[in-house]
Nucleic acid binder design. Structure first.
Lengths: 213, 213, 213, 213
DNA sequence: CATGAATGAGGCTTCATTCAT
DNA sequence: GATGAATGAAGCCTCATTCAT
């Protein structure tokens, strides 16, 4: 009997509940096709209540992003940025962490939503870039650059190499989530990362593969 | 004496002109935000004429896709599929071909549109998968598998390795086109592919980097 | 059988028909309370058609005003402005013209609407001021000023005297239309103007009322 | 020991505070555009409290009117009604009193609101008519009628002449407040009344301006 | 008494689609 | 074939009012 009543009153958690509902609805139907009423119904409130907390439909998706993006800054990034020594370890750690994260469908839904809507709504792409990419990419670039400088890596272009580090994961998720193309045994993100890291680290290794006679 | 008007009827090319216009408009504003009127104006015809050739807005984007996707099957793919010997060459060729293609903004617009709208409209993703991915991926998988079998490559998983081959390009384009993140000197797709191929081929090379004593 | 059909097609007169309908609805219910649907129904078209011609509800009332106000410029005003000689005649003529105009309920509805909505919607007041008052008032002020200079009138303040010229008519209409207060025998605008002119012209007459013994 | 709070409850004056706030908000934005929340915030109470004292938004404006209109009956009116002798003096007094009143923006706001909303809400016009006009107009009519009967005034129509007495003031305020048209040196209501009275009294004077030969 | 979270009917506006010409 | 005026369903948002606390 939690709430058959017309007026309940739970202001503290409401905004978050609305965001949860919105996340679910946006993931299912996409931003454009999602009706504010759907979100309200899903959150168990009225349309008016949604507008009590968010000024517009646009504001809802921005709030979702802000909320999802906040933890990124304080996550593993600082530790990776400060890492000294062979960069292979933090890179492997980062990719495996991402792999674990994306294996949770609920977590996976977030970047999927970003990508999906970011392509149509520049404001969303901007937020994601500002709050995630502009933080994460320089860390990775620095890591690679130091790896090169310290002789761990071949003399690759750090900026472009970052695309080689994360690209396969993006491709894998895109194939799976957008086009429904998966390996026979499911998403297999762990196996992808293993396979990718082996190629990547061998490919980056300082020693040329053929030392010659 | 076909017509007294300045421009005679050209009903044979009309549908294509409409598709060109639609492509341009969809690329600029996205499918949802594009109005049929925009497309008509761009094509220099009336709204009614658009509906003369296409049953609905959805039908327009599907026609764009069909038209764009048709040449893929008859392109370089068959030659690559039939290739014998070290797979490095066809892989490099393929990536460089893709690189050249995507450097033309007009060509780039096509996969961008697919990705953008495929995420929201499953029917589009289906067409793209059926007509492009289901043809191209098996060819690449076969190439890698044969490379492994012939001892050119380390014993990698062919299916997953395909993600490592194309992923960096996808990442590069996504960063550039969705988030506006580009290397200092422009898109630099050629440089990316060079950098990527060096890592990739070294990473795939059969000889382990460190033979040990 | 003028039009039981769903699609009729009479583009040339449509905008005016919509304005007529809007005028009627606004007069009845006021701008705020009038629904676009009311206007559409009254005009015998669909809501969509209204938006075909007018970008918004606001645009409708502005169009009404523009249309009503257009004839003013080209009306009696230029002739009055150019008048030479005793200004009593053009003033009397002007007031009697106004009196005749306002006796037609349909014409009366226009300034009523302006006043009514101008009080709440500054944009409307602005248009009315710009297009009507800023043209008419200077003409009247000039007339009075010349009357004073030529010795026809006592040395009154022309600007303020304009209020004395038109004020009684405004008061009469306001009492009648806003508050339902009318002389026993109806609106009697003609009688009001006669009575007003007698007082006004005697009041303005150059010769002091009491020439002395 | 009425309260530990900084401000003790003052329920006796609360309704009046709400009405003051409402008056201010209505004057600024008009009745329709004023939100109950605005009124509450201005009054320093919650929306719920407003509804504690007033059943609806309509009830608020009616209460404002009742409160504003009450003092009118007991004002200068009885004295004027009882006045004997040349009516010029009480008329001048009345107009000057009105002039002083309307120079106070806060006082001016009241008739402005009446006019503004009376045009849209008949109930408001009715109240104003019943409580103000139906009392004031007969007094003025009587004054003029007696002036005519006693030979002070020319044989004008008393009812219509009342429009000539108050009209210029109405016109002046309307031009100023609705359309922003003011004499160069501000509202100048005093000067208007002087100018008006001179014309009016000369116009009403019994002796015809030109006795003729 | 007082609060302010919650409601939901109702309005304006958009735009894919239809069809008379 | 071609046009573009007309349609109307559907969605976003506002805000007066209610009521649990």
């Amino acid at each position: 009997m939690t709430s058959t009543k017309k007026f309940s009153r739970r202001s503290e958690t409401r905004p978050d509940e609305v965001l949860d509902a919105a996340m679910a609805v946006f993931s299912e139907k996409g931003f454009a096709a999602a009706k504010v009423e759907d979100i309200a119904r899903r959150a168990g409130v009225s349309k008016g209540t949604v507008y009590l907390y968010f000024a517009s439909k646009d504001a809802i998706i921005e709030a979702i992003i802000e909320r999802a993006v906040a933890p990124v800054a304080s996550g593993a990034l600082p530790r990776i940025a400060a890492y000294e020594g062979d960069p292979r370890q933090p890179i492997a750690m980062l990719l495996r962490t991402i792999g674990t994260l994306l294996s949770d469908p609920e977590k996976l839904a977030i970047p999927k939503l970003f990508l999906r809507e970011g392509m149509n709504i520049p404001a969303i792409a901007d937020i994601y870039r500002r709050d995630v990419l502009d933080r994460a990419i320089p860390v990775l670039v620095g890591l690679v650059a130091r790896g090169v400088a310290a002789g761990h890596f071949r003399p690759v272009d750090p900026e472009l190499t970052v695309r080689s580090i994360v690209g396969p994961i993006i491709a894998h998720v895109a194939l799976s989530e957008v086009f429904g193309i998966r390996p026979a045994d499911g998403l297999a993100l762990d196996r992808l990362i293993d396979n990718h890291l082996e190629i990547l680290f061998n490919g980056l290794a300082a020693r040329p593969p053929e030392p010659g006679p």
